[in-house]
Write a protein that binds this DNA or RNA. Structure first.
Length: 421
RNA sequence: GCGGGCGUCGCCAAGUGGUUAAGGCAGCGGCUUGUGGCGCCGCUAUUCGGGGGUUCGAAUCCCCUCGCUCGCCCCA
């Protein structure tokens, strides 16, 4: 195949799909605005170090999934694999963390060099929300509710919210040790990659889908056994609030965020309709991140939603539905000019107008008018022009020639009144 | 990076060694040089992702390669 085509894992969003995107994006913007979030936009390209430091050297994302290159100034640059690191960088760089709590949302394309599969592309889109400078457990609950309500509002059903706690950094350290010691006893059962994980990120083993490991994990120590009274109380409080908000959830003590700066709340919203990649929204609290990137200690909590997965769940619920108000049938040199002027005037008056520029026969043009699903056809030809008129036709009426009305070219007010009816 | 499935027109496809590569949708033209949704007629793949091989003969068999897809790892 010598034809030029998209890079693997990168797809075109064609006109038949863009309207769905616009609708969801508009709904998201509206939902976030009502939720008191303000949008932040950061560059797609950042210095590589931002992600290696912000996401973690030992993660797969940084270790093998980044789109990185050296630019002409000999800097290592990376297309963002996620949104949070850039947002944090921006808050620090622009001094926004000195201006009180920040409630933000962002959206746009992210890039990860992975093998594409259902619900996963190399260029994919996320929308995310984050709170900075808010440490109460109510913030965690509010943020979860914003995600939950958004997904509900746009009409997605069958979602499940799973939550877990990772405790404080101290708690995690203790748990990590416990877990490592425990897995060491079964080191023979672990393959190379799991042993690697055991060294770098033992908590992530809990997430394994390997059936044998899953069985093993059933008997592994759970985090509950390691966390402090305060952490436990915080987690119970979160559950209480979610109950009060009538947001159903399940506890999943294998749900972990592998990175060191995560603490307390971790959650995912999943669906069984997504194939292997079941998570449509994932997030948690990461009080250590801002500091790790050179800012002041700042409590932070956030989540991201995968847009492509959202669309899989939506199916045909948000269909393209924008048909023209008017299809302008026209023929003959002078009539064509008149039609162009009329199209412009109607568009100015907020009508969606499709102008037939084909110059083909009236029969053809009407065929296309019908296909376009326009409500009205306006007809301008030599005959009409000679009388200083045009015709309006209701395309939804089945009779062919009987449903025309003639109108003078200068009766624009009258025309718009008819079209609106 | 590693497995499984697949690759025939813009889309959906039939064809599984004999040569004129069905059919449907969409598109274009006509029946209808000025009137739509139905109908009828015609046109639209020298070619079966690409390359090489086997054969008198290949879309059909073999090898390589590219791409898509599903899964593993991991994530949204």
């Amino acid at each position: 195949m010598t034809n030029l085509q998209t890079l693997r894992g990168m797809i075109d969003i064609l006109p038949s799909q863009t309207e769905r995107w616009q609708r969801i994006e508009a709904l998201a913007r509206d939902h976030f605005t009502r939720s008191g979030l303000r949008e932040i936009r950061t560059p797609l390209l950042e210095v590589t170090e931002l992600f290696s430091r912000g996401i973690g050297e030992t993660t797969d994302v940084v270790g093998k999934e980044m789109y990185s290159f050296i630019d002409r100034g000999n800097r290592s640059c990376t297309l963002r694999p996620e949104g949070t690191a850039s947002v944090v960088r921006s808050l620090i760089q622009n001094g926004l963390l000195n201006q009180g709590p920040q409630r933000l949302w962002y959206g746009g394309p992210m890039f990860r060099y992975e093998r594409p599969q259902a619900g996963r592309q190399r260029q994919f889109h996320q929308i995310g929300a984050e709170f900075f400078g808010l440490s109460s457990v109510r913030s965690d609950a509010e943020l979860i509710s914003i995600a939950w309500d958004f997904l509900k509002d746009i009409g997605i059903d069958g979602l499940e919210l799973e939550i877990n706690t990772l405790g404080t950094f101290e708690d995690r350290k203790i748990y990590r040790k416990k877990l490592t010691d425990w897995f060491e006893k079964y080191i023979d059962l672990l393959d190379d990659s799991l042993r690697n994980q055991l060294r770098n990120n033992p908590l992530r083993i809990l997430d394994s889908k390997n059936p044998k490991i899953k069985e093993l994990i059933r008997d592994a120590p759970i985090i509950d056994s390691s966390i402090s009274i305060n952490s436990k109380e915080r987690f119970v409080k979160l559950q209480d609030i979610l109950n009060s908000l009538k947001i159903p959830f399940t506890l999943n003590n294998c749900l972990v965020r592998g990175l060191d700066y995560y603490c307390h709340t971790a959650f995912e919203i999943t669906s069984n309709q997504l194939g292997a990649q079941a998570t449509v929204c994932g997030g948690g609290r990461y009080d250590g991140l801002v500091e790790q990137l050179g800012g002041p200690p700042t409590p932070s909590v956030g989540w991201a939603i995968g847009m492509e997965r959202l669309f899989i769940l939506l199916g045909e619920k948000i269909a393209n539905s924008s048909y023209p108000d008017v299809y302008l049938v026209n023929r003959g040199e002078k009539a064509e000019m008149e039609a162009l002027c009329l199209a412009r005037a109607l568009r100015e008056a907020n009508f969606k107008v499709e102008l037939d520029n084909s110059g083909s026969t009236f029969a053809k043009q009407f065929k296309r008018a019908n296909r376009s699903c326009a409500k009205w056809a306006i007809v301008i030809g030599e005959e009409e022009l000679n009388k200083g008129e045009f015709k309006i036709k209701d395309l939804s009426k089945s009779s062919m020639n009987l449903n025309e009305i003639s109108m003078k070219l200068d009766e624009f007010e009258n025309l718009t009144r008819v079209l609106k009816a």
